[in-house]
Design a protein around this nucleic acid. Structure first.
Lengths: 233, 233
DNA sequence: TCCCAGATTTAGGCTAGGTTAATCTTGGGA
DNA sequence: TCCCAAGATTAACCTAGCCTAAATCTGGGA
């Protein structure tokens, strides 16, 4: 016997690996050992060891020296964690007054401790939301996630209107900064310029008067947007 | 480095031991190894091992072959866990529609995962309650617990009025059964009889018409009551 | 007082999950 | 084609917590 109180049947560590691999797969599959190591802040050999255990449990497929891919059951388990994380974040912001920049760490711990029942009760109390406070889609109970067709602000063509749809929840400072600009999920703006050589993007935020704001390239890459129909003169 | 995400600085297992020892101390101190082993469903030698670690961390004082006592810092940590547990139970019943018989296990996991901040937000949202759903007093943030002067129903004199004040949260079946009798914390009743040789206690519950109910000795010992002033003819 | 039953501790082992140091693989550039 | 740097794996080791079996302490009754 071992480890943690189980709410999914997997150890806390296993849950962390699966979620990390799931998230890394959206940026390319198979997922490399080093990518997992970096995401979880763990030494690469530790990842090799865990990957072996995960693949013995049929949660991932491992091709030595190449990387891992989630199996169906691995993906199911990962999506369960993602759902938990996003519902907890939404609950904390909507019902307990947390700011969007401070929910991540709390959710990171709670996602391992809550039961399915509690998650469904939270979801119910929230009216079964589709997106978390950072705009990320919440997987359904049976593991369906909406595919979003988003463009980083850094790639939105100059002259078009766009709406901020999603930001990573990982960096509180970044989130606080974005909020301080008046940017949050759902806000529309016009892209009025972009400097070459990874220069800043300039956007025009609505208001009276409208406010122009320069946004560094790094940050612009983190802001996932919808390009809106109908350009602006 | 090791183990669990920390919200108190102690491992999950350490938190469990401290809380168990705290609760056992209310029934007599020092607390024996075997009592801890039974409470945590762990083999006695494992407890010996952990007790050594706890006393090296100055959380308990251990007298070999005699038992352990919490130190001040051990008691502080234990009370923090008790506060967490009871606030979580209260929150789940009041805000998420849980029944009093189903909150224990959920709280048992969550108490290790919530931050102090979340607990204080929950307490705030509840209006800083003094008692949990089973009538147990909630320690304050700085570790003060109300001393309650209660009598098990099995010891309440025949002929007096009493009010149910507290029931252990551990046995869901017991809690469901009590509720099915119309008994919950705060309900007053008259003790109208008690059979010798660990026989049942009979109580008269208010209502129209009043309902008499026989309660087995074991159960009666688990129901902590206030004896009310003013006897009944 | 002595002895034994029951409680406790020690000894020895196991697993999960982490570490560092050393050894392989792999693929891209000369 | 060859070689080497980067990335992955293996080897060896550590700790927390658990286990069972064996040894040891303690206290109550004859």
């Amino acid at each position: 016997m071992s480890a943690d109180a189980k709410t999914t049947g997997y150890s806390r560590s296993t849950e962390d690996y699966l979620k990390a691999i799931y998230e890394l797969e959206t940026q390319g599959s198979p997922v490399q050992t080093s990518a997992i190591a970096e995401a979880l802040e763990i030494a690469p050999p530790s990842v090799s060891g865990m990957v072996k255990r995960l693949s013995e449990s049929d949660l991932v497929e491992h091709v030595p020296y190449r990387g891992v891919r989630l199996t169906d059951s691995g993906r199911r388990a990962a999506l369960r964690m993602v759902r938990r994380h996003r519902i907890v974040e939404t609950y904390l912001t909507q019902k307990l007054g947390y700011d969007w920049d401070s929910v991540h760490d709390e959710a990171e711990r709670l996602e391992h401790a809550v039961s399915d029942e509690l998650i469904e009760r939270m979801a119910m109390a929230l009216g079964n939301p589709q997106y978390d406070p950072h705009g990320a889609p919440i997987p359904t109970k049976d593991g369906a996630v909406e595919e979003q067709d988003l463009l980083p602000l850094s790639d939105v063509p100059v002259g078009s209107m766009a709406e901020l749809r999603m930001v990573s929840d990982r960096d509180p400072d970044l989130l606080r900064y974005i909020a301080s600009l008046g940017l949050k999920v759902g806000v529309a703006f016009e892209v009025i310029g972009r400097q070459p050589f990874k220069g800043p993007v300039t956007i025009r935020l609505p208001g009276t008067p409208p406010k122009d704001q320069a946004i560094g390239h790094e940050l612009a890459r983190a802001l996932q947007c919808w390009e809106l129909e109908g350009e602006v003169g």
